[in-house]
Design a protein around this nucleic acid. Sequence first.
DNA 1: TAGAGTCTGGACATCGTTGTCAGGCAGGGA
DNA 2: TCCCTGCCTGACAACGATGTCCAGACTCTA
Lengths: 366, 366
Amino acid sequence: MLVAARRASALYGQDQHTVTLTEGRPPAPRYGSRPTMKDVAGRAGVGLKTVSRVVNGEPGVTLETRRRVQEAIDALGFRRNDSARVLRKGRTATVGLVLEDLADPFYGPLSRAVEEVARAHDTLLINGSSAHDPCRERELALALCSRRVDGLLVVPAGPDHRYLEPEMNAGIATVFVDRPARGIAADTVLSDNHGGARSGVAHLIAHGHRRIGYIGDLPRIHTAAERLRGYRTAMEEAGLPVRPGWVSLGSTAPERVRRAAEEMLGGPDPVTALLTGNNRVTVTVVRVLAEREPHRPVALVGFDDFELADLLRPAVTVVAQDAAGLGRVAARRLFDRLERTDLPPAVVELPTRLVVRGSGELPPAG
Amino acid sequence: MLVAARRASALYGQDQHTVTLTEGRPPAPRYGSRPTMKDVAGRAGVGLKTVSRVVNGEPGVTLETRRRVQEAIDALGFRRNDSARVLRKGRTATVGLVLEDLADPFYGPLSRAVEEVARAHDTLLINGSSAHDPCRERELALALCSRRVDGLLVVPAGPDHRYLEPEMNAGIATVFVDRPARGIAADTVLSDNHGGARSGVAHLIAHGHRRIGYIGDLPRIHTAAERLRGYRTAMEEAGLPVRPGWVSLGSTAPERVRRAAEEMLGGPDPVTALLTGNNRVTVTVVRVLAEREPHRPVALVGFDDFELADLLRPAVTVVAQDAAGLGRVAARRLFDRLERTDLPPAVVELPTRLVVRGSGELPPAG
DNA sequence: TAGAGTCTGGACATCGTTGTCAGGCAGGGA
DNA sequence: TCCCTGCCTGACAACGATGTCCAGACTCTA
């Protein structure tokens, strides 16, 4: 079967690889040549509607006719065209999920959970990433609306979701996940970001820390703002000041986070403990702390659990969110709404859980 | 805006949460009430085709007419129905990606890379998980064919892909990723599993190990078999025997892997080093090794890189696959094939890279 | 044997869009 | 004035399926 093997890096850009050519199938026929129900009907010598009945398992076809039709279907390789079906029936049995980044480990379980619920409703899930870009979020969500998904789950990246209002009014069920929509009333499923951050900081305070910093995501992102609020609440409740330089908000790019951490730890007014605002930030901070080995250890509580947190030394104490739970609850809400379009919008908040593992229990310096 | 807040665990099963009801929008109108081009045409006082021209930015419409149409579109909240469009045009500008598990960190970057390529071709990506189940793989792939995706990327879970032959002949471009298809000739993009495993084991041998075990995925999975072959090749090249009990293949469920590792390390013929067959296995084995702390350390090389591998102690030496590269190359091949349907099927193999971090360099006992 | 009722199969309109084609209108040249 | 060209515009068929409705064949009963 092998015909040739050669280097062909040029073909696919930077990626080095080996190409092995194999004997070809006959070239595929031009697109659009797929057999239709009409073709099947012709070959089986029956009417169009009879084929439709067989394909959809509807009653009212004799065994013999059914057999003849099935034979024609197999012979021609017929497969029903769902685009046409959708056009006639109105429902697509498809829902869309717009999230930030498929490669972020937080979204894997979330997406997976949504898919399971969708599957239980015989519905296909389309998911796409906005790559943290409000513009792409909008493009993607509207593209899904054009395909007439029955429903839409959105993890907002943008600051304004009024663009979805006409779509929602036109009957596309929409649920926001992880962050609320801005500018419209809609179903929303959130984590208890404020409470979670507050309990994380309280935990550090209980272990003797007084100088605690917070490194978080962009302030325009709801979760980042809420977690900051939780941090401030906990500090205030303990009567502790938040000094200038103890809060750093910005992108989760490793360079930015690294700089923030180094300034907080090495500046004139250093902190002895840190709360990190999500798993991307935590991972970078863990790396910074590991590089400071000879220094006195710094206490850390991370928002979001992550795989292997328990195997690092010290193991990382986290405020765990239930990502799968967010997805599951949001998806269920979506399907509820598909059945009863008159539900008033609701906000659901899932609790977080402090997972104590060691890094938050380190005593402060001195 | 807040109307009520209460516990409502019953509503959404096990998940604990708080529901906050908010003032409702007017109920969404029944489905199917969306305005069509006909409605827009009526309101703007122009013909149907003129609306189509405006919506698609086709030339041959005066500025004034265009303005009137646009006004009607905005007023009615019209959005083109892509199902109907697809029916007429034949192409869906959609490709499907069938993988094993969206929550597996290996697939995040892969899926992300595919999405980027698709986006560059103005194409929507639908991805779904087979959950390692051949049956679901088939269901999902055929469901995507029914929706008439233009192309399909498949990470095979099943043992036989002849079911896709009619679809491929009917013009659905198909590329297999990470594992070859069985039973049909098709484009395929793989990692160099044999070479990677071989170099990983050779690395352990170079550091003095003679008793090396392999814990891998189910033997019916191509990558698992190839990596096993690489392991055997390396052992053979070094003139080392592979003793009974040194190879364990099976599911990647933590319990199974844990048992395998404990038997290999604690049995009558213990190994001093391990090659683990993928990131799921590696993570579990790292956990087992960590629990054996007082014991003499065991050397480890893992197939697949994973986040934080460098921060564990010892840091984990891995055979890194380029997951994003697999996705990128496969997606490019898919779009090539969409343009030139007469390409002969090719197999592309991407190199792996040994990333030395410490765990593979531990000396053997004695 | 006729009449009533049941079962099976097919003709036809329809979903919302796009491609084809022809008509209408203005301006310029004969 | 008439014709021709070129530009806009709209009527109509088609894409592939489903729902409605009716015709014809058949069974069963009186």
